[in-house]
Amino acid sequence: MPIPSAIRAVFFDAVGTLIHPTPSAPEVYAHVAARFGLVLSAAEIRTRFLAAFRAEEAVDRAANWVTSEGREEARWRRIVAETLPGVRDAEACFRELYEHYARPDAWVVDPTAASVFAELRSRGLILGLASNYDHRLEAVVEGHAELRTLRPHVVISSRVGHRKPSPDFFAEVVGAVGMSPGEALLVGDDFENDYLGARAVGMGAVLLDPNNRNPEVGDRIRTLPELAQEMAH
């Protein structure tokens, strides 16, 4: 998987690439739901959550991926409502879950991230973060030393008005470093939003595929350290 020599900046997706919820989202939802009078298994919650999440993705697709802080809160409100039907005090339940994911301790950073960042920077590369998220990610970034090093170049969908895979989102990404698309690379775990979205605008793209879900993709890695190894070639 050769990395183009023209690459001068590397952006990373956040959720699923650099950060992971801990405990898992279904476990957190199950725990909170039980306190609000609804008992569901983590497995059932996962099924309902994925269906609700996909429905909101379809809404955003129909809207050409336009977003805002208000839209992001509304989409999560609907996801929680569909995932946890019948809880007592639905607003309080939603608010607790929504605020939970603004807490740095709700997330664990990939333990190899700091060394990968250091290796890439040693080669003169500029690093950044490019995420479909909202203002809550800023608090998460502040709470993790590894992520704080990316602060000069953080692009969040709710802040720029478009979500991946919109070309407008990726225009903001390359604009953040003042480069052409061919000089920037995105590393992410989502085949459509990250990999295809970046490639569609002429950016480099690497798919993080730890579970080998997309073996047909040539530009993919199983772990983050593989990226540093490939960029050494």
Rank of each mutant, 00 (worst) to 15 (best):
T83K: 10
L185H: 12
L18S: 05
A9K: 03
T112C: 06
R159S: 15
M203A: 11
V141M: 03
A43M: 00
D134Y: 09
S5A: 15
R220G: 08
R71W: 10
L207T: 00
P23H: 02
E96H: 09
D60Y: 02
R151C: 00
A198D: 09
A114T: 10
P26D: 01
R103P: 02
P215S: 06
R199M: 07
S180V: 12
I221S: 05
Q229S: 13
A118Y: 09
R159L: 12
D105C: 05
T22Q: 14
A176H: 05
V187P: 01
E230R: 14
D168V: 04
R88M: 08
R159C: 08
R136V: 01
N214D: 04
A228T: 06
A33H: 07
F169L: 10
P85V: 03
T22W: 13
A106N: 01
W76N: 06
V28A: 08
V66N: 01
P2W: 01
L40W: 00
A51M: 08
H162S: 04
T67K: 08
L227I: 09
G124D: 01
L84C: 04
P21C: 06
E91L: 02
I156A: 03
P85Y: 02
E96C: 09
T149F: 06
G128V: 11
E146R: 00
A228L: 05
L147I: 07
H20D: 07
T67I: 07
N212K: 09
E72A: 14
V201E: 03
A81Q: 14
G188S: 04
L227A: 05
L227M: 09
V66P: 00
R103A: 14
T112W: 03
M231S: 10
R220V: 06
M179F: 13
A34M: 07
V10C: 02
T223Y: 03
Y98N: 12
A228W: 04
V28M: 05
S158H: 01
H20N: 07
I221K: 08
H162M: 00
V59F: 12
F36Y: 15
R8G: 11
T149Q: 15
E56I: 05
S166T: 09
L50A: 05
D219Y: 09
V87P: 03
P215Y: 02
L224V: 06
A113L: 11
G175H: 07
A43S: 09
P165Q: 01
P104V: 04
D110Y: 02
A171W: 02
V10E: 01
R61A: 14
L38K: 12
I7F: 03
A14V: 05
A52P: 06
V201G: 02
E72T: 10
G197V: 10
E96P: 07
R8E: 14
N212S: 12
A171Q: 12
R136N: 05
R61T: 11
R88L: 11
S24M: 04
E27I: 02
A42W: 04
A114K: 10
E142G: 15
P111W: 00
G218D: 13
A145D: 11
V80T: 15
V10P: 00
S68G: 14
D219A: 15
M231C: 09
F11P: 09
I3Q: 08
H233E: 13
V174E: 04
D110E: 11
T17Y: 11
R54P: 00
E99W: 12
Y133N: 15
I19F: 08
V15Y: 06
N64W: 08
